[in-house]
Design a protein around this nucleic acid. Sequence first.
DNA 1: AACCGCTCCAACCGCCTGGAA
DNA 2: ATTCCAGGCGGTTGGAGCGGT
Length: 305
Amino acid sequence: MGRQPCCDKVGLKKGPWTADEDKKLINFILTNGQCCWRAVPKLAGLLRCGKSCRLRWTNYLRPDLKRGLLSESEEKLVIDLHARLGNRWSKIAAHLPGRTDNEIKNHWNTHIKKKLRKMGIDPLTHKPLSPADQIELKQRQDQHEQHDDVPLPPLPSPAITEEIQAATTTKKSSSSESQSSDLTTTEEEKSITSSGMEMAEADALLTPSPLFCTDEVPMIQPEEILVPSAPSSSSSSSSSSVSSNPSLKPEEFSFVDWPDASSMCLWDMDDFSCSWDFMCEDGDRKLPIDPWSQYQYPRSSFELL
DNA sequence: AACCGCTCCAACCGCCTGGAA
DNA sequence: ATTCCAGGCGGTTGGAGCGGT
């Protein structure tokens, strides 16, 4: 017996959201807050299932979302976090304010995977592909230049496979922590702290405003929140254009942590790169490590891509 | 201009989990 | 203890947009 669908799908709309639907959802959430997604479509006058509403809001309409491609620093962070957490996109996204798990997942699949493979790094294991694998990969790429979905070559060694499986198992066994709030530190996140970056450093890395390329993403003030009027399918890269809603007041955005514009500053990349000197514990000592060393290629080789 | 193939990403689907009943 | 429900997550898909021929 299959599981009941999340909602009665008869008569429900699917596919891209229209500007009108977005407007209804935004107005509803801003007025009532996020609660009981199942009830949202009915109360907001939408012919969507609650799940669809939640996704639309969290992945697209939330005012605190960043837009645009991931910056180089964000990309590095994603790679590092992926090496430690695997495909746990929501966990990874939790470390990148304003980014969604979906966005990071997409970026990983479309950009980062390719970069790593080009560099001879297995995106699955974050270990170098063996020379034989690289030759094979090259041959396959030559044969199927256009296809990125070439099956991955064999894993470098059974030990690595076990390592990944162990990580996967950890995911299952630690599922009880998966729902914990962002403020709590999970076991895995603790391991990140101890084996990799210091939490404070990670926080510094992850401090929203200074990190991001503000030229990619215009700062939006609460009073500037606008309701899109163009169909969503065509507004993917310029989401929040358009007709303002005078009924929405800045104070109604209390659930959004708006960056303090006065504290905004741009960091030089050189300043930022300093933050990538991680520490590892060696007994009682803490030793600095370069996270890029695990890839066994010079940092600059990545930056050239 | 038309066609084709590729890329990208918004959205969907199915499963899992925690909490309430 | 069990069942049900809602929310969350990760994998996958579909289609718009774009470049090449």
